[in-house]
């Protein structure tokens, strides 16, 4: 992997981790489409990816720093008090805990087997197309739910713990390369009556501990001898991934105030469909 390729992958990671277009799918498809000889299972590449994820997680933590301070304080206070209340940040904090359990367990138990089964371009392109239909279906279902009744959107803290688990399970679908973490959890958020803005915010908050834990647990890989080879690429890439992730979350929080998932659905359908044709017809092998 050259320095320029590393920087490109860092920007790709920072953008595609938070846009509902699947970072994992893109990091499989784009190097394959560009015929880069990137060994995704090498120690040096894994160390590089750990730093990119750390950069992304730190960007999310910084962007939502006020929320995380309030949530952390409220969680500690509720444990010390020994009672749950309906205070906004305390409820959001426990909803995030409830939602993180299923996605965390799915990741710990099934990540390596899912990656070994589907971590190649054709499954990734197929799941990217499926990701498009998940978003189209989610928007259609939500419009139908809200067209026929006086149903109203709810704030995040008004959803139930069962709903939080459903959103967490939906986020677990992102283990499949091509299925977007934010896309699946925003769709699940919409279906439990959050509006787009709240569903996106909840999705980003829910993603933060997952991405952070996944990267922190892999930190030992940074101390492998192979990681020293890519130290400069990793540090530069991590900073770049963090900056682009911050810009992405800033853009998306504004975007979802008035817009929906359909443009991302069209992108995934076109990109995934084109990649699927190129790989299945062996134009690119």
């Amino acid at each position: 992997m050259t320095f320029a390729q590393a920087l490109f992958l860092a920007v790709l990671q920072g953008v595609s981790e938070l846009f509902p277009i699947s970072s994992l799918g893109h990091t499989i498809l784009i190097p394959a489409l560009l015929r880069w000889s990137v060994d995704r299972s090498s120690e040096s590449f894994l160390a590089f990816v750990v730093v990119l994820h750390l950069g992304t997680a730190l960007a999310l933590l910084v962007f939502y720093r006020r929320e995380w301070i309030a949530i952390g304080g409220a969680l500690v206070a509720s444990v010390v008090r020994g009672r749950l209340s309906d205070a906004r940040y305390e409820k959001i904090g426990w909803l995030l805990v409830a939602g993180t359990i299923p996605v965390g367990l799915l990741g710990v138990f099934f990540e390596s087997s899912v990656r070994s089964l589907f971590g190649s371009p054709i499954p990734a392109a197929s799941f990217l197309v499926l990701n498009a239909f998940v978003m189209f279906f989610g928007e259609w279902l939500r419009n139908r739910q809200f067209a026929d009744s006086a149903r109203q959107s709810r704030p995040i803290e008004a959803i139930s713990y069962a709903d939080a688990v459903k959103v967490g399970l939906a986020q677990g679908l992102a283990l499949l390369p091509g299925i977007s973490r934010s896309g699946s959890s925003i769709v699940a958020g919409l279906l439990v009556d959050l509006d787009h803005e709240a569903a996106a915010k909840y999705s980003f908050l829910l993603a933060t501990p997952v991405i952070l834990a996944a990267s922190v647990l892999e930190i030992p890989k940074l101390f492998e001898p192979a990681a020293h080879v890519v130290a400069a690429q990793a540090v530069t890439g991590g900073i770049l991934a963090g900056l682009t992730a911050y810009a992405s979350v800033a853009f998306l929080t504004r975007y979802f105030e008035h817009n929906d998932l359909r443009p991302f659905g069209w992108y995934c359908l076109l990109a995934g469909g084109a990649a699927l044709i190129l790989f299945t017809t062996k134009v690119i092998s």
Partner: peptide, 27 residues
């Protein structure tokens, strides 16, 4: 399997928190 061990410990910790909430339930 360090990741698995950490995941199980976190679940044990959350179960302890649940006990804490149960202890004060109704007070």
């Amino acid at each position: 399997h360090i990741k698995h061990a950490i995941a199980y410990f976190v679940l044990a910790l959350l179960s302890l928190v649940w006990i804490r909430f149960q202890t004060n339930a109704g007070k």
